[in-house]
């Protein structure tokens, strides 16, 4: 069976992508068909979080997700413009905190943080936000600055 054209809204643009094979991962559709190379391939086994994107606002491991399984969804990647306010704020916080070393894990971390804040809000308990990043690895071990970036985004509950 040949799947129908894949329909995605990616960073605000409606895409209709023909000839996407059933086994193809969302990661590969983004990087190789749509040329959005900001989303990184790390382990390809769901252990590192480098490939994290948002699907309908929720964090998603694009290496373990068949592209056709999210047909019809809205996909947000690190390339999204400033109109996506939350992602833009997270990017700015990572910038201010200097929360990157080699930078390879950064897109995944930014999307994971944006996803968590979208789900839980900026007033969520600090522990819950940090626990929620347990699926993202930084091989430079630059975690302290990443935690500072998260702290910049948090709003204290009065």
């Amino acid at each position: 069976m040949t799947p129908r054209p894949l329909r995605l809204n990616v960073n605000g643009t409606a895409e209709e992508i023909p000839d996407v094979p059933g086994p193809e991962r969302l990661l590969d559709t983004l990087r190789w068909r749509l040329k959005l190379k900001g989303t990184k391939e790390g382990c390809r086994t769901g252990d590192c979080g480098a490939c994290t994107v948002l699907v309908d606002g929720r964090s998603c491991l694009s290496c373990l997700t068949l592209a056709h399984e999210v047909d019809g969804s809205t996909v947000t990647t690190i390339e999204v413009g400033a109109e996506e306010v939350l992602v833009a704020r997270v990017r700015a916080a990572f910038d201010t905190a200097g929360a990157l070393q080699c930078g390879y894990c950064t897109p995944g971390f930014v999307m994971a943080v944006a996803g968590l804040l979208g789900e839980r809000g900026t007033a969520a308990p600090r522990e819950e936000l940090l626990e929620g990043l347990g699926g993202n690895l930084c091989r430079c071990t630059g975690y302290a600055a990443i935690v500072r970036a998260v702290d910049l985004l948090r709003t204290e509950v009065p």
Binding site: G46, S59, C60, L61, L64, A112, L116, G134, G135, N136
Partner: peptide, 9 residues
Amino acid sequence: VGSVALRHR
């Protein structure tokens, strides 16, 4: 189980 992103799927 796993991570937040994993539990979304």
